[in-house]
Design a protein around this nucleic acid. Sequence first.
DNA 1: ACCTGAACACCGTTCAAGT
DNA 2: ACCTGAACACCGTTCAAGT
Lengths: 234, 234
Amino acid sequence: MTSKQFTSVWLREPRKAASPGRSRDEIVSATVELLDAEGLNGLSMRKLGAKLSAGATSLYWYVANKDELLELAYDQVWAEMSVPDPDEVGWRDSAAVLAHSMRQVMLRHPWSADIVGRMPALGPHAMHVADRMRRMFKLAGFRGTEIDFAGSTLTAFVFGMTIPEIAWDTATSGDDYDPEAMRDLVRKAAARYPEMLASIDMDRYDDPRVVRELCFDFGLVSMLDGLERRLTTA
Amino acid sequence: MTSKQFTSVWLREPRKAASPGRSRDEIVSATVELLDAEGLNGLSMRKLGAKLSAGATSLYWYVANKDELLELAYDQVWAEMSVPDPDEVGWRDSAAVLAHSMRQVMLRHPWSADIVGRMPALGPHAMHVADRMRRMFKLAGFRGTEIDFAGSTLTAFVFGMTIPEIAWDTATSGDDYDPEAMRDLVRKAAARYPEMLASIDMDRYDDPRVVRELCFDFGLVSMLDGLERRLTTA
DNA sequence: ACCTGAACACCGTTCAAGT
DNA sequence: ACCTGAACACCGTTCAAGT
């Protein structure tokens, strides 16, 4: 009764790509542009309609609802990720490049952080990345379900590092970043934990981006080492 | 001009906890209940007001806006996480227990997956977990910024594993889960990658929860091994 | 000190109607 | 086949007004 069937754009046949009218591609790239410019809350059917100089409700001809629009936009994000062929550069380099690429792409499309928790990535571009990742870990020497587990571990790490990073960026939204205000904030939040407070490196707030980069690399190396360990222990 | 100052509930003094009127605690637990029952989109000021048998706009006396409400609710999630004292059980066990606890708590409050990417965790309960985590990795032998890096790596792994898991759960929203329909979906999505398709373990869709558990454990062990490796290499 | 209702500027989606 | 506008049932937030 209260339960809804699972639905997804990828389960429906799209409208015939007829000559007149707008194309789905047009709509999707306008959606991505709007999301990049105004964020997830900035996207509304009315605004998107206006951007395409059409009525808001015209969009419902191409798409069942707003969620489908987001699914389509989300897959565009996956399209931007680059995975070098593992057969050419080896699994570990291939994994490292993918990880950095995923992070950069998400930082360019901060709204994607809100989508990862809302809908599974089932689009063709996500599938392409998944396929490459499988080959990557197969080449590494994993077998059976562990191939998937290794892939999940890699994407988990990247998502988990990048999503909170985006939370910080959008909260401090950009251009008027004030390191001293940030230090005050942290001092206030951690006031009851003097030990923690004493050991926080306050310089990191001068330019948080460089520390984050170091942190990401530290975690990535750890994770890859950990995966490699699985191979020798088997 | 377009830039907003960073704001947070944790930067303001709360209203005096006077005797009459609703207390902030009351409001926060009603918020969490509503979020658990109806999800992030199900929470509206009007519904929350009604639940407290008050006008929707009364809430603005206690809270500046809806985001502050979410910050308060989010910290309640951190309150439910359990971290054994690392001095008693050792850093590795302490980390593993925290990781499992974080995951379970998030699965109980699926709306938290949407918040991780939207606002930093600065509440007192989040700080308590952060403090314990610092001590955990200090005990392990990390020094300086690496203490923080190790902590970030741990939480990144848990968030990154759990957030997409929640996306799946909410997309297939519960009670009418049909394994066969799921297999069809996956077959359709992966149709263009026969190699991938051939090696996907279709049994996993009978009860996805057990596979996820295995996957989480696999990743967790890898990650902890990887961190341990950092210690011996230094 | 606390709460209210009216009002404003928005939403997503449905649907009958137009071409 | 494609697009429209009106309409419905919602939103978050402000603000003057009440007690």
